[in-house]
Simulated scan of single mutants.
Amino acid sequence: MNAACQRLLGLIRKEFLQVLRDPSSLAIAFAMPVFLLLLFGYGVSLDARHVPIGLVVEHVSPESRSFSAGFDYSDYFQAHYFRDLREARQALLSRKINAIVHLQADFERRLNASEPAPIQVIVNGVDANTARLTSGYVQGVWETWINARAESQGLTPMRAVQLEARVWYNSGLRSRNFLVPGLIAVIMTLIGALLTALVMAREWERGTMEALISTPVSVREVLLGKLIPYYLLGMGGMLLSIGMAVFLFQVPLVGSLWVLLLAGTLFLLAALGMGLLISIAAKNQFVAGQIAIVVTFLPAFILSGFIFNIDSMPWPVQLFTHLVTARYFVAILQTVFLAGDIWEVILPNALALLLMALAFLVLALWRAPRRLE
Results as ranks from 00 to 15, higher is better:
80 H>T: 10
87 E>Y: 07
84 D>Q: 12
105 A>M: 08
97 I>A: 02
67 F>T: 03
111 L>S: 06
109 R>F: 13
78 Q>H: 14
98 N>D: 03
58 E>A: 14
57 V>M: 00
62 P>E: 02
62 P>L: 03
60 V>C: 09
65 R>K: 15
67 F>W: 05
95 R>S: 12
113 A>V: 04
62 P>K: 08
73 Y>D: 09
113 A>N: 01
56 V>L: 03
54 G>P: 08
108 E>S: 14
64 S>D: 02
61 S>P: 14
103 L>C: 04
68 S>C: 07
88 A>Q: 00
88 A>N: 06
112 N>H: 14
65 R>G: 06
94 S>F: 15
116 P>R: 00
102 H>Y: 10
86 R>M: 07
70 G>Q: 10
96 K>L: 13
78 Q>N: 11
57 V>R: 04
102 H>P: 07
69 A>F: 12
96 K>A: 10
63 E>D: 09
82 F>G: 06
60 V>F: 06
97 I>K: 02
118 P>A: 01
91 A>N: 06
83 R>I: 14
65 R>T: 12
99 A>H: 05
117 A>K: 02
124 N>H: 08
91 A>R: 11
110 R>T: 09
98 N>Q: 08
124 N>F: 02
69 A>C: 10
67 F>N: 02
85 L>Q: 02
114 S>I: 05
77 F>G: 01
78 Q>C: 14
72 D>P: 13
125 G>V: 13
112 N>V: 15
59 H>V: 14
79 A>T: 09
115 E>C: 03
81 Y>K: 09
124 N>E: 03
104 Q>S: 08
120 Q>F: 09
98 N>G: 09
75 D>V: 15
98 N>T: 06
108 E>H: 12
78 Q>F: 11
92 L>H: 04
116 P>H: 05
126 V>E: 05
83 R>L: 11
98 N>L: 08
99 A>K: 00
108 E>W: 11
123 V>T: 09
55 L>K: 03
100 I>Q: 01
102 H>M: 00
59 H>P: 06
59 H>L: 11
76 Y>T: 10
113 A>S: 04
56 V>E: 04
81 Y>N: 03
117 A>W: 00
87 E>W: 09
75 D>E: 13
110 R>M: 01
96 K>G: 14
67 F>R: 06
96 K>Y: 06
67 F>Q: 00
112 N>R: 15
59 H>K: 11
66 S>K: 10
99 A>R: 00
116 P>C: 03
122 I>Y: 03
58 E>I: 13
64 S>V: 08
121 V>Q: 01
75 D>G: 15
81 Y>R: 12
114 S>D: 01
122 I>L: 02
77 F>S: 03
72 D>E: 13
72 D>M: 15
122 I>E: 00
96 K>I: 07
119 I>R: 00
99 A>N: 05
115 E>I: 12
